[in-house]
Every structure is written in C-alpha cells, then in structure tokens.
C-alpha cells in the first residue's frame, strides 16, 4: 500500500507536524509500504531539506505568494492522489488541514476520521483512536481503506530531519493553479513580536475563561510580575479582546515551551494543550477537577484561582523580603 503524508510550510520553514505525519504513515503501513510526502507551498526548500525520511517527495511550489491557500493545496493534493493511488492519505489537523481533509474525502468519497491520535493496521483496515467532544471522549474506529485521516499534531513523534535525495523529488510548478483559484491571497499579517514573544519567555502565566473578565486579568498580572513571567491567554480570552493576539497560547496562537507555565482558569482543550504541553513545569488551577489541563499538569489545584493568586502572591513577596 502507498501512503501519502501531507506536509506544510511557509516563510521558509517546515511545520514540525510535517515530520510527525511521516512517523504516523510508517505506523499505519506494513513493512515495504511506500511513504510519499506531499508538500505544497511557496518555496520547495523547507521540504527538500527536511523530508528525507519519506521514500519520495512530491512537491508543488508557487513562488511569489507568501503562502498557499487551502483551495490550491487541496487541488494539487487531489491531482497527486489520482496519480499515486494511495491506500491512505494523512492530513495534519491545522488551519489548512481542516479544508483539505474534508475536500479530499468529498472528492473521492473515501472515509475520513478527524482528530486522530493513534493508528494501528488491522489487516486490510485500520483501527484508529480519535478525539471527539473536545477530547472528553475517545472514539475507537475501524476504517476501511482507502481512507483519509486528519491527524492531531503532537500525537506522533517527529521523524528525524534530513535532506531528500534529489532523485526522489518530483516537483511541479503550482503558479498556474494558484492563479486560477477562486481564493486569492491579498495580504498576510504576522503579529509584531517586538513587544512580546511568548516563544522565548522562560515563565508564563496564562489566564483562561475562568478569569471572568478583562479587569480581573490585572490580578493575574500582579502574580506574573512577582514571578517575572509574561502574561498570556487562551483563545476565548483573546477572542473576547481581553488580551492581544501576540499573547495567545494554543493552536491558532503561539506554541510555547517555557520553564514555568502557570495556567489559571484554563480548561485545557486539545487546541490549547497543543500550544503548551511540552512546558518544563506546568501548574494548573481550575475549580473543575475534570478539566483536561490536569492531564498535562505536574501540579494541579481545584481552589478558586483568585484566592490562590492572593495567597501565593503574599507568600512569594514575603519570601523575597518585599
């Protein structure tokens, strides 16, 4: 069976989950199954330099556009799938993947399972474990082949990075396809990291919905100042306008790996955990003992976060003699 592993990259960098898709493909395949990496983006370089662990690379580039819209990616992928006739296509759960996976399943009529964490080969079918209800329930599914799976970032280890042998690269110029598209890129906004870059912060205090309102964030800021930490927010906090986008942690915000991550009133949806679960020391406070954040926290507490902040600030200030 041939397996197509979809990869992504922009601004000269490969998305790390691309390397995870290749690991997932090896796990789904039997010995001897070919793993073909598929890439579509502005430049080829990030793919060619890193995806050597795949057996082959099919890559489309469209120089001149900063990133490729999902519409073009999906169309290029469909052409590749038609040519390669794989038994399985792996698409990462990303902003792009949300459009691409369903698009391919709709075109081919193949089964699609989303939010996949585990894949096992079972003869001519796959058994997969996927998250549903925001990760509160796991669904074990039996999937006939050929199929499409949308795979969670972080569920599989990254395969090692190495360059692709030039003889194993099939390149196509996607410029015409991008130009014909009905989705035309007119601008890209990259947040201004001059003021704050959470990815380089050693310590982060993150507030979630549990903080209640914008004014209450000041209470968390007080503790953050004592700890010398940056203040951050989960998606609902930023969507409500209480903190700027540059301070968002999670799938559509920043992926951080600080030495200390203190989560106050954060429930821990999978998309948030994706952004911080690799932090060295995770402390979580949430009055819901079932909050998924506790699955990744090294220390957890279910007391009221405001009481905790008040008490902890007092003790830290006393200890440092302030």
């Amino acid at each position: 069976m041939r397996i197509v592993a979809c990869t992504e990259g922009s601004f000269g960098k490969l998305e790390p989950f691309s390397l995870e898709m290749i690991t997932a493909a090896r796990m789904a395949g039997a010995a001897g199954d070919e793993v073909v990496a598929f890439f579509a983006g502005q430049e080829l370089e990030p793919a060619v330099a890193n995806l050597g662990a795949a057996d082959r690379l099919v890559a489309a580039s469209a120089g001149g556009s900063q990133l490729i819209a999902a519409e073009s990616y999906a169309r290029l992928l469909a052409d590749t799938v038609a040519a390669e006739e794989p038994g399985l296509v792996l698409v990462p759960y990303s902003a792009n993947g949300l459009d691409v996976a369903g698009d391919l399943a709709a075109r081919t009529g193949w089964p699609l399972v989303s939010y996949v964490n585990e894949i096992r080969r079972d003869g001519d079918r796959l058994t997969v474990v996927a998250q549903v209800y925001g990760g509160k329930i796991l669904a074990e599914c039996s999937v006939p082949l050929p199929a499409v799976l949308m795979v969670n970032p972080g569920a599989f280890a990254e395969v090692e990075r190495r360059a692709v042998d030039v003889s194993k690269v099939q390149h196509c110029d996607a410029t015409a396809i991008v130009a014909e598209g009905k989705v035309r890129l007119v601008g890209v906004d990259v947040p201004n990291y001059d003021s704050v870059d959470l990815t380089t912060a050693d310590r982060i205090v993150c507030v979630g919905r549990g903080i209640g309102d914008e004014a209450s964030i000041d209470i968390a800021r007080g503790l953050a100042d004592i700890l010398g930490a940056e203040i951050a927010g989960s998606r609902p906090v930023v969507d409500s306008g209480w903190l700027p986008k540059v301070r968002q942690v999670g799938k559509s915000g920043q992926k951080v790996k600080p030495k200390l991550y203190l989560a106050l009133g954060v429930s821990g949806a999978p998309e948030h955990l994706e952004g911080m679960s690799k932090s060295d020391l995770i402390i979580a406070v949430n009055t819901d003992p079932k909050a998924p954040i506790f699955n990744v926290a090294h220390f957890g507490a279910t007391c009221d976060l405001f009481d905790l902040v008040a008490n902890l600030s007092e003790r830290l200030q006393a200890a440092s003699g302030r």
Partner: peptide
C-alpha cells in the same frame, strides 16, 4: 459511504502523573 465504524467510545484515562494539591487556597 459510511465513513468508519465506531467500535467503542471511552473516557480518556488519567494521562497525567501530576500531583493534586487540593482545594484549600
């Protein structure tokens, strides 16, 4: 065609090995 068969649903086990410090602030 039907996408896939749900074989079983389950609640995620406690993945973490973290320590619970309790509810007294």
């Amino acid at each position: 065609e039907k996408s896939a068969e749900i074989v079983a649903l389950r609640l995620p086990g406690q993945r973490g090995t973290g320590e619970n410090l309790g509810d007294n602030p």
